[in-house]
Design a protein around this nucleic acid. Sequence first.
RNA 1: GGGGGUGCGCCGAAGUUGGAGAGACGGGGCAGACUGUAAAUCUGUUGUGUAAUGCUGAAUAGGUUCGAGUCCUAUCACCCCCA
Length: 376
Amino acid sequence: MTFQLQHTDPNSAARAGRIETAHGAIETPIFMPVGTAAAVKAVHIHELEREVHAQIILGNTYHLYLRPGMEVMKAAGGLHKFNGWERPILTDSGGYQVYSLAAQRKIKEEGVTFKSHIDGSNHVFTPERAIDIQREIGADIIMAFDECTPYPCEYAYAKDSMGLTHRWLKRCCDRFDETEGLYGYEQTFFPIVQGSTYPDLRKESAEAIASFEREGNAIGGLSVGEPDEDMYAMTELVCGILPKEKPRYLMGVGTPMNILECIALGIDMFDCVLPTRNARHGHLYTAKGIINIRNERWKNDHSIIDPESTSHTSRVHTLAYLRHLFVAGEQLGGMIASLHNLSFYLWLVGEARKHIIAGDFLSWKEGMVKSMATRL
RNA sequence: GGGGGUGCGCCGAAGUUGGAGAGACGGGGCAGACUGUAAAUCUGUUGUGUAAUGCUGAAUAGGUUCGAGUCCUAUCACCCCCA
């Protein structure tokens, strides 16, 4: 993997760059649709390519390991072959499930024992195992196995957890460096900064992560319920420490507003379930504001969903039709809305990139943030 | 034409052997939440008025009773059986 820093914004920490992977290029800043279980929910890969213009998508180690399992994954020849997505893929390590499935797991120094949410069986995830599984999945970018801490988080716990994540990181790196990809192409590995909302811990963690000198770096443990100001403060602090010449990935963020603010702080890569999950729940993001398509006010609004959308679907169908699909419980509603939201997210980061290159990013961002936050 | 049954909330439905219903539960409606996805899920609300106690309400009209959605009479509507 290579990263080329192409432009830096003179008025903020925003940058435009280009990542090259074995499965093609990614222009940053970028948003990566989440495809946890080998599918971006309700969106076909043809639509991801042709309408959303996604450049890279995610998969999830924990979920793919449990189902379909690595036997199937290896027999398929890796995730790219399995789901048909030929562009770059990034996998989360299962570190987020340490947080989201906290009720079903036990953490020890060696690793985490998960009680499967599918059948209750026990599975031990060590840092080494998380790397092995991601080798088997064949993701272009694989993530360190970490503990994503909750919010709020006691200082003592956050400090201990950060220490554990750092020790696990060493083990991840060692395993990664002593193994190779199974399918004949190069994979790369990103470590993850933790430290909850404590500046001193974030500083310590960012310095520790930077010292591993991997090809890119990630920030985890944010967007777990903390106020936006805390998220921004931690992101700014960490971006000031992580090397400029390597991509920075802010995990799990966020709303369109969060993304623009964090681009301004120096983040290059984002992923989040909001555009797809909220789409299935009738929540649409547009440049003019937020639409809850189930609301009665759209019942007889026969205007186009979003005439400016890069998605053909959003330029063809009307708000009244989309509302009808949701009210009627038709699955097509969630599909159209998912396509719309992802198209908007990719359009948004694409515009951000253009404005960074043009030199007017900050003023453009201010207008967009205000406009997008409006409830229509 | 004769006999029997049913009738309250937007809909379906529970329950009250005459003793305080704004009334379980389900659906529908309306609204909210969701941030490295156990989520096409979850939550709230759904007669009316208020700061609050309230007010109105069990097909319609009467009656019996201290007290009726519950008993009686008539009317209306719907369902079933017989002719």
